[in-house]
Write a protein that binds this DNA or RNA. Structure first.
Lengths: 158, 158
DNA sequence: GTCTTTGCAAACCCTTTGCATGCAC
DNA sequence: GTGCATGCAAAGGGTTTGCAAAGAC
């Protein structure tokens, strides 16, 4: 598992994943509601097995293949992002609700904590890229591996 | 395959991957020399099968497992980067010599072209992150999916 | 000579797929 | 009722591993 500093998103009802799924024309099934619920409640980045584990707490007969299919559908609809977080913890992927077009993760290679910075600088990145290169970004994924403030502090004190 | 705009790196002898491998204490074997050579000559991002194909042109008995082991060793030594390029073209990974600490790819989701921007703005990114968040970046990987200038032009003309 | 690396094949893990059944619309 | 979604099991693709032989230092 990956420890995480992500703040749970306080969505308005209109924003809730379930209605956004309906908006795309996808059928709303029990399984999808459960997976959406798991993602929505998650305060961390989940790999597929973890999504399954949490989904099964609600409905034990949910199948791994369904989780994959749902996650892929949501990914294609642009509602969820698939990350690999600098391959911390193996080859699998991690999933989270896409908070915006841009997706920035600072992964501490020492303790595994994942931080998601916010602010003007980050929000301007897309526009800057477009201005400088002519490339029109639709999705940005930035993963930075390094040392978080806490681990860097500890290292200095040794 | 992924089309690519990357300019081949003109390394000085001291920079050559082979000597950098030696510097890490790894044994220099025929297989590693060949893989290093392939990576060094590459003007594009290579997936494992492509590294193998090119390596076998030089020595046909090189084995896929050796390529994986070599690539992983180089990755751990920090000499090579593993990318997934927004999962264009499937689940596999792509490899390239790490040109610097920071690694930025603009992947066109329409035509698959990969562009690597350069310039002051990008080089400052790491310092900015450190200043704003206290996180000390060691490796940055940014992958941006979107539409390249050429495809955007074509789209408008439809 | 010692310890690492290779080739080979088999195992492994993550993910996808085919099919009959079940369910949303 | 029609067509998409699910559970299940089996296959698929990418990657890793155990072992004996070969090679680097």
């Amino acid at each position: 598992m990956i420890r995480d500093k992500r703040v749970p998103t306080h969505n308005t009802d209109a924003d809730r994943l379930e209605s956004r799924i309906r908006d795309t024309g996808m059928r709303m099934t029990a399984a999808r509601r459960i997976v959406a619920d798991v993602l929505e409640r998650a305060e961390d980045h989940l790999h597929v097995e973890e999504v399954l584990r949490r989904a099964r707490k609600i409905d034990p007969k949910i199948h791994l293949a369904t989780v994959y299919r749902t996650l892929n559908a949501l990914k294609e609809a642009g509602l969820v992002d698939e990350l690999d977080l600098m391959h911390v913890g193996g080859g699998g992927h991690y999933y989270e609700i896409r908070p915006s077009k841009f997706h920035i993760h600072l992964v501490c290679l020492t303790c595994g904590t994942v931080e998601e910075p916010e602010g003007e600088f980050w929000e301007q990145l897309g526009q800057r890229v477009e201005k400088e290169t002519g490339f029109k970004p639709e999705a940005l994924r930035m993963e930075m591996g390094g040392t978080c403030r806490a681990c860097f502090g500890k290292r200095k004190n040794r």
